[in-house]
């Protein structure tokens, strides 16, 4: 019944990643760009967890005696995504701090107004 669950979720992650990248590149508003970046991160995280999915697998938690009761999904991608989400928050907060400082300087959120390093 649920043999295509992995593929369906991976397709969702794929679409989210592409949409996020498109938003990051096409928007002029800096806050919108950061929103696109955070959607991109979410999509990539979903793809990574979907790679570790095993058909009919359960969460990698053993029972009290320490025996494996069922088929498990891969714990390694989950562990990586766990750290990746926390780092994503740190990076997003850092970018927003930059945006706040930039806005104080030029009173504009449009990325085209910041040409100081353009040549």
């Amino acid at each position: 019944m649920d043999q295509y669950l992995g593929q369906v979720v991976m397709a969702i992650g794929f679409i989210l990643a592409i949409l996020g990248l498109y938003g990051l590149l096409s928007q002029k508003n800096m806050i919108k760009m950061i929103l696109g970046f955070s959607i991109f991160t979410t999509g990539v995280n979903i793809i990574m967890v979907a790679i570790g999915y095993v058909k009919g697998g359960t969460a990698p938690i053993l029972d009290a005696e320490g025996n494996a009761v069922a088929k498990f999904v891969d714990p390694v991608p989950q562990a990586l995504v766990l750290t990746s989400i926390v780092i994503g928050l740190g990076v997003t907060a850092m970018m927003l701090a930059y945006v706040m400082k930039l806005y104080q300087d030029k009173k504009s959120l449009n990325i085209n107004d910041y040409k100081d390093l353009k040549w």
């Binding site: 669950l5 959607i39 979410t42 995280n45 967890v49 979907a50 359960t58 990698p60 989950q78």
Partner: peptide
């Protein structure tokens, strides 16, 4: 999007990731 993706993580049998994504 963040909330929905946390439910998707839960469907993929990743409760640890779902917990983190739901709060972060």
């Amino acid at each position: 999007v963040g909330m929905v993706s946390s439910i998707l993580f839960l469907l993929l049998a990743a409760p640890d990731v779902a917990m983190t994504e739901a709060s972060i």
